[in-house]
């Protein structure tokens, strides 16, 4: 069943369109930077952008920083929100369930397919970021955001870690969207629900009055991947972000399973 879901993912034009759009944004940003040579001042704008003019090899991390706040979570919410609700509204869910595909099995396959999509998207964004970055800015001497120099191996390793962290950060969104996808038959409704949670979280993160709940907000530690490029690596927020996402994933997947396994398929 997992293979079937992956085949569906791969054969779906929407998958590639989404990934194409995700890579287009950092590419456009890179072109503007390369032609104007006007970099945002350090500490302003998306992470790393001030540094990439000097060194294109940092552009994968910059590209992740560009798509992370809005574009990537929107794409993940749309794909994950569609996972069960999309089948329900197309009518194929009833044929899958009486094929028979066990409901737990179906949900696991959907989850794997969403994870593969997230990883694919993040890896493609980082990969294209590297190509675009090194082509447009050239690769100069590598340095961390703390100013010390990094070897190529270190930079590569940290980029891979960042890709993994950003990918994992998206799984919380995916789990929420998948849960809502089992609740409603509307893929759009599920995606919007997950996005509403994210927007709320992002607003509250910036609100000092909400400081008491800040550590539990799903988007709180998203940008902690930047810490992976400090020297020495600042693990604290990365670790917390990882743990927090794991809790969100566990809770919402359990809810999704409990709901879907006992639900009447009436679509």
């Amino acid at each position: 069943m997992i293979l079937v879901e992956l085949r569906k993912l791969i054969r779906r034009p929407r998958t590639w369109l989404t990934i194409g759009l995700l890579t287009a944004l950092p590419t456009i940003v890179a072109i503007f930077l390369a032609t104007t040579k006007v970099a945002p001042r350090p500490g302003e704008g998306p992470a790393f952008l001030s540094a990439v003019l000097a060194n294109g090899a940092l552009y994968p991390a910059a590209a992740l920083g560009i798509v992370l706040p809005i574009f990537l979570p929107v794409a993940v919410a749309v794909i994950a929100g569609d996972s069960v609700a999309g089948e329900a509204s197309a009518g194929t869910l009833r044929y899958l369930v009486c094929r028979p595909v066990g409901r737990t099995r179906l949900l696991v396959a959907k989850l794997v397919s969403v994870i593969v999509f997230v990883l694919l998207a993040v890896v493609v964004v980082a990969g294209v970021g590297y190509l675009v970055g090194t082509q447009l800015f050239g690769s100069g001497p590598l340095s961390s955001t703390s100013g010390t120099s990094l070897s190529t191996t270190q930079a590569t390793l940290r980029t891979i870690l960042a890709v993994g962290y950003v990918g994992f950060s998206m799984l919380g969104v995916a789990a929420v969207a998948m849960f809502l996808s089992t609740v409603t038959d509307s893929a759009l409704g599920a995606a919007l629900g997950a996005l509403a949670l994210l927007v709320t979280s992002q607003v509250l993160v910036l609100l000092d009055a909400a400081a008491s709940v800040r550590p539990y907000l799903p988007t709180r530690y998203w940008l902690a991947f930047v810490d992976l490029f400090r020297d020495p690596v600042l693990w604290r927020d990365v670790g917390r972000g990882f743990a927090l996402q794991a809790v969100y994933v566990a809770v919402f997947l359990a809810a999704a399973w409990a709901n879907f396994a006992t639900k009447d398929v009436a679509s």
Binding site: L3, R12, A90, G91, T92, Y95, P100, V101
Partner: peptide, 25 residues
Amino acid sequence: ALVEGPAAYGHLCGRANLELMDAAG
């Protein structure tokens, strides 16, 4: 079974739909 009308993935051809459903269970 045929329940309340047929359903298929619109962007795939009929044969691909049958292959996917067959492989699913």
